[in-house]
């Protein structure tokens, strides 16, 4: 009986392991090897750590990474601040029927591709766009205002794209929050803000952490939104990887950047978890 169980266990596990190995582990090993290769002055391929050294020596590279990481953190914070009241409204205040409707409404933008979503914003915000048209019509501005191609717009775009990934874990965390806890806090003379700080946020902490990790990784790994909405100054780290692979034909450098992104973003998340005193296992559960 026991050996039968073991056999079927391995039988079912094998495809998963195979899939993991073939599609995830192998290509990464290949990329890792690639990242340690480079040309010497003679144009021959040799083993080297220059690709990694370049990242720290060349200011543009690490500057771009720091910038990308900071903006990803800002995006995560903004998304959280926006998603909290939205999820609270959906879970605690809206009627059951409105609730489903609102959730669908949140989901709706994800039925089209990210490209379409970003172009939608561009149509709205561009100098000759819909918003400017109304501003001019109502006489609020005399000259059309360019609202695209700056960092604020880019962050707004990123927040919009990642909203859902924060709202969903928050909703499921909040659903388990007993209304009477909120009422009890209110009864004990707590203001709304105190209730938020001492009851709701601590209760939703696992949801917040998992939402924050997803949003942070999505923002960090995003390519389209910073590229299209951010405009002139917004060199994103993923764009740099793309440029290395595609424009400069420098796969070795691109692979090194890819691994640096993986390692550095994991470090940031690790620090974040330490700061919020969480373990990754708790979040996943």
């Amino acid at each position: 009986m026991k050996s039968g169980f073991r056999l079927s266990f391995w039988l079912f596990l094998a495809p998963v392991l195979l899939w993991l190995f073939l599609l995830i582990v192998l290509p990464h090993i290949d990329l890792l090897l690639l990242s340690f290769r480079g040309e010497n002055d003679m144009g021959d391929l040799v083993w080297t750590i220059d690709n990694y050294k370049n990242f720290f020596i060349e200011p543009i590279y690490w500057y771009t990474f720091v910038r990308t990481a900071l903006y990803a953190i800002v995006t995560t914070l903004c998304t959280f601040v926006l998603a909290l009241p939205v999820s609270f409204y959906i879970v605690k205040l809206a009627r059951p029927r409105t609730r489903g409707f609102l959730t669908v409404l949140l989901l709706l933008p994800f039925w089209v591709s990210e490209l379409v979503r970003v172009y939608g914003w561009m149509i709205l915000l561009r100098e000759s766009g819909v918003l400017n048209y109304f501003l001019l019509k109502t006489g609020l501005v005399q000259q059309p205002v360019e609202m695209l191609y700056n960092d604020v717009t880019m962050i707004m775009g990123l927040v919009y794209t990642s909203m859902l990934f924060m709202v969903v874990p928050l909703i499921s965390a909040m659903e388990s929050l007993d209304d009477s806890l909120i009422e009890a806090a209110s009864d004990l003379e707590a203001s709304r803000f105190t209730i938020l700080r001492t009851i709701i946020i601590p209760h939703c902490k696992p949801g917040i952490t998992s939402g924050a990790i997803v949003v942070f990784m999505l923002a960090l790994g995003n390519y389209l939104t910073p590229n299209l909405m951010g405009g002139k100054n917004s060199l994103w780290f993923t764009e740099q990887i793309y440029n290395q692979f595609i424009a400069s034909f420098n796969w070795n450098q691109g692979a090194a950047f890819g691994f640096l992104l993986l390692v550095l973003s994991s470090c940031i998340i690790w620090v974040g978890l330490k700061l919020s005193r969480h373990r990754l296992g708790e979040v996943a559960a």
Binding site: S234, Q240, A247, S248
Partner: peptide, 16 residues
């Protein structure tokens, strides 16, 4: 040339 150009393009884009 292309690696050289790639670096320059990154530099231009990243500049304030």
């Amino acid at each position: 040339l292309e690696i050289m150009e790639g670096k320059i393009l990154d530099k231009i884009k990243a500049a304030k």
